[in-house]
Design a protein around this nucleic acid. Structure first.
Lengths: 257, 257
DNA sequence: TTTTAAATTCTCATTTTTTGGGAAAATTGA
DNA sequence: TCAATTTTCCCAAAAAATGAGAATTTAAAA
């Protein structure tokens, strides 16, 4: 192993399952001699990507927090969508968590989440957590807008059974799922697509399933679809959105009923 | 340049001043041939540390968001301090922003911030933004608890004039500053030190300066000092704090008046 | 579509790093 | 203080990065 891979292989060890590692354990896990790992770790330390913990343990370093902030300031989806996300949560008028998510390799990752003050639950989707492609409204609504070729490559065998469902979602322009990810919760999602930025993402709302009657559902879907359209516009203009009101006149709300 | 440095040099170009770069500009800025930069960028792309933007531009990638989340889950200061931070902001009973900050190389970085719902201002300190060492209560309270040797090395010539001020802060056990960072705002900070974790940090509160009368100041300082002590305890036990109440009986609040 | 320019990858001999095994040094704990 | 652990250092062989330009791909314009 060489170059960046060597460093990433070490960093990827530090996950939810195990947040701190000794050099010995890293060497064993990677099948690489200790002296090599020591050198690699030393480089990562000076870069701030790792830092020393107690007892010869190491953990992820503060450089990630610094770069994460720059990401927040830089990412066009975040810039275009943060304000709309906040408004969407406010206008939902019920306990909910709003999410802004996007493709990340072969998974979907939430890049911004916002809970209403009265939301006493937390969905599995949260900022920075990669999630499976084929489950939940948040992900499916993204899949449904992906070029067929790319989709086939990503899903492989799992593609066939989803095909007709995704076609429907694409035609509808939104997706609602109940308990697909978290039992007792429901997700509502609308796609955000920006050709020129090569970006396929989604705006979604997670609510308690038993609060989601037919009327509420159609109200929220309408709002989401129009909010997503606002983000798309803002992305096109490459500037933060005006977004005074969330349901402006004459939006093209394709199939949102 | 070789190894990690080569990659970090590229990543460090992406800052607040310029969030997107072409390969040509990177090559020029680094004084390295294009073909080399292309290779480096390609590696960073596959790692998710960079991603392509429109028009042959590149920007920081989503891997940072992913690792940032792991940091949130892993970092002992964050784990021990997040709950207390939230409570401190709630108990302040006035518009404020609470901060949890720590040393990061030769700077101080906020690693968690929390604004009260009625706070309509934002301090310069924010999660992930490195700040100067020698300005503001948040930083000074950290400096004051640093070993003299380390301090001298970090500050160099700037050390002498600060010396007596830092000695006072150390004796007091807290620090209050007005308008040192942001005009019209005031910062109150208490140190968090954990020898065994080799950690020097601070818990601070930013409020509007004109709301900070003598009585409010001493109330907030008392609360902060005691909250910081709770975090220290939690760090020692290496577990999330119990923290039912914020001003428990019999805390050793050295010099907090 | 064809043309043109720009962006990106590729090639390859040379130079520079990395590698890994073990010794040495530094640090830590008892 | 001593012993165990952690970390750095050393060095020759092996592997990888470098850079200049050519070749290819992609995107935009005519």
């Amino acid at each position: 192993m060489a170059g960046l891979q060597r460093y990433m292989a070490v960093l990827r060890l530090f996950g939810e399952a195990q947040g701190t590692w000794t050099v010995l354990d890293m060497a064993e896990a990677l099948g690489v001699p200790q002296s090599t790992v020591y050198r690699t770790v030393r480089d990562l330390l000076t870069a701030g990507l790792l830092e020393t913990s107690a007892d010869a343990l190491y953990r992820l370093g503060p450089a990630f927090i610094e770069f994460d902030r720059l990401t927040r300031l830089t990412d066009p989806l975040m810039r275009a969508g943060a304000g709309v996300l906040e408004q969407a949560v406010a206008q939902a008028q019920l306990p909910c968590v709003g999410l802004l998510s996007r493709l990340y390799g072969d998974e979907v990752m939430c890049i911004a989440d916002r809970a209403s003050t009265d939301a006493h639950f937390r969905p599995s989707y949260e900022r920075g957590r990669p999630m499976p492609l084929a489950q939940g409204a948040t992900s499916k609504v993204i899949l449904a807008r992906l070029p067929a070729r790319r989709l086939a490559k990503m899903l492989g065998a799992a593609h066939a059974p989803l095909k007709s469902e995704l076609a429907l979602i694409r035609r509808q322009g939104f997706c609602v799922g109940r308990g697909e990810i978290d039992r007792g919760l429901a997700g509502l999602a609308a796609p955000i697509v920006c050709e020129e930025a090569g970006l396929v993402a989604s705006l979604s709302l997670v609510v308690e399933a038993d609060r989601l009657d037919a009327f509420t559902q159609s109200r929220l879907v309408l709002m989401l679809v129009s909010a997503a359209a606002m983000i798309e516009n803002a992305l096109g203009e490459n500037a933060p959105p005006a977004c005074g009101l969330l349901l402006p006149e004459g939006e093209a709300v394709s199939g949102a009923d």
